[in-house]
Simulated assay, not measured.
Amino acid sequence: MEETCLDDGPAGNFERATLEIANVDPVKPATESADDTSKRNSASRNVCNVPFKHIDVHTFFTDRNEVVERAINDCTEKLIKENDDELVGSWLLTEISLWDTEKERLVLLSTKALYSVKYDFISLKILDFNRISISLLDTIVAGELIYPPASLAPRLSGLAEGVSSIINCAVRQEWSSVTGCSNFTQFESRKRHMPGIRLLWNRGQPLPLIKKWNPFAKDIPWLTYASHPLFWYKAGTEIVKTRFDIEAFHTTLKSLLSHECNVVNMPIIIENYCGLGALVHNRNGLGFFKIRGKVSF
């Protein structure tokens, strides 16, 4: 038996060496796969907490970089250079109105003012803009966007998400998954879980009721911004994603503020108590220029 083992020893050792080499090589890919999985899981957690959870990024006209670049150049020529000013930075962000409706805005920051531009990314022209002098800003609030405790908006959002999940399962003919899609967790209240910033120039004065409850009021003394939905979905370098990032905008803006301007870190309350109109508007992305079948707006 010992003699047999000696004869078979080299072959056995060679086979074990071969197996060890084969097992060593996949270690790195396995590690990379684990890292990639962790990143994907982290990204999926973020995506679940942002607006337009099931969006197709290719439906956004701004998904094409050359379109955004052209819009920035157009607005710089017509709004900034004509006022003998200098561009500091430019972003594509989501502006949240007093009534909690999300709108796509091109934000240009110059040494003297901030421009919030409603730009038609289909016909490539400026539709409207709001110019706020940097010297007018008295308070900058940065923090998570939240609703008041008595607001129905998170509950309605959870209800809409649950119904949408059931419909999607049925449409895809995943009848066996409908039961799983209809569990109660799908209908839980949905918070925004998004950071934002609010720029105020009201000197601490409350908004008059005649403006607060007027959906057509435009001279609201503050602006609220969040990251553009493409920030979570856009593929590319960090430089490309920075264009849609509220944090990058906040950092640049702080460098231009005067010492008199207060910078506060606290939650930003979106005073939306019922929110049916905002829910329909935001879930369908009506404030963004997207491809919608034969109709695009």
Rank of each mutant, 00 (worst) to 15 (best):
L6K: 15
I21S: 13
I21Q: 05
N23S: 06
V24G: 00
D25L: 09
K28V: 14
S33G: 05
D35V: 07
D36W: 14
R40I: 04
S42K: 12
S42R: 11
S44V: 03
N49W: 01
D56V: 04
H58P: 08
F61D: 07
R64C: 09
A71D: 09
I72F: 07
D85V: 03
E86L: 09
G89E: 02
L98W: 05
D100E: 04
D100R: 06
E102H: 09
F121N: 05
I122P: 02
I126G: 12
D128L: 03
N130S: 11
I134V: 08
Y147N: 03
P154Q: 13
A170T: 10
V171D: 11
V178S: 02
T185C: 10
E188G: 04
R192S: 10
H193V: 07
M194I: 11
W201H: 05
W201E: 02
N202R: 10
Q205T: 14
I210R: 13
I210W: 12
F216S: 10
A217F: 12
K218M: 11
D219E: 12
Y225W: 14
K234I: 13
F244W: 12
I246T: 03
L253E: 08
S255F: 04
E260Q: 14
N265Y: 14
P267M: 04
E271H: 14
N272G: 08
N284S: 14
L286G: 02
L286R: 09
L286P: 02
R292Y: 11
K294M: 13
K294L: 15
S296F: 12
